[in-house]
């Protein structure tokens, strides 16, 4: 049952690989960014699942609650999500500018244009 117990890690890993592959292998700049986001999200999930304590509830002090999840990873990931959004928006802004400058957002065509210029 070990594999089921580590289910959350498997899910993260699969998402991570999908994201990584897309970010590296896809020629379309937008798709690369989508891949990057999936990759980051998988890490967010990893953090959140680390903090989860089986049977625990939200960490609010209340009568009768003894077991609760660790809130710290969740807070950390809040920061990381903000960073992720900033990165994504900056990346998209860059893609817009690239699209204006090259009239395409396909990486291979951009490289072609640069080679012609050189």
């Amino acid at each position: 049952m070990i594999s089921v117990g580590l289910f959350n890690y498997w899910a993260c890993m699969v998402l991570m690989m999908i994201g990584l592959y897309t970010a590296i292998a896809r020629p379309n700049l937008i798709k690369k960014l989508i891949g990057l986001s999936i990759f980051q999200v998988s890490v967010f999930l990893l953090y959140i699942s680390i903090g989860k304590v089986s049977g625990g509830t939200a960490p609010i002090l209340a009568e009768g609650i003894v077991v609760y999840s660790n809130p710290l990873p969740h807070v950390l990931i809040l920061t990381a999500i903000v960073v992720g959004i900033a990165t994504l928006s900056l990346g998209l802004a860059l893609v817009v500018r690239i699209g204006e400058a090259y009239d395409t957002i396909e990486e291979d065509k951009i490289i072609e244009q640069d080679l012609v210029n050189d």
């Binding site: 970010a23 990057l36 990759f39 860059l94 690239i98």
Partner: peptide
């Protein structure tokens, strides 16, 4: 204009 692609490349690699 290649500054834009360079920056984009760096963004992908840096974020990874």
């Amino acid at each position: 204009r290649r500054a834009l692609t360079a920056s984009y490349q760096y963004l992908i690699m840096g974020t990874l």
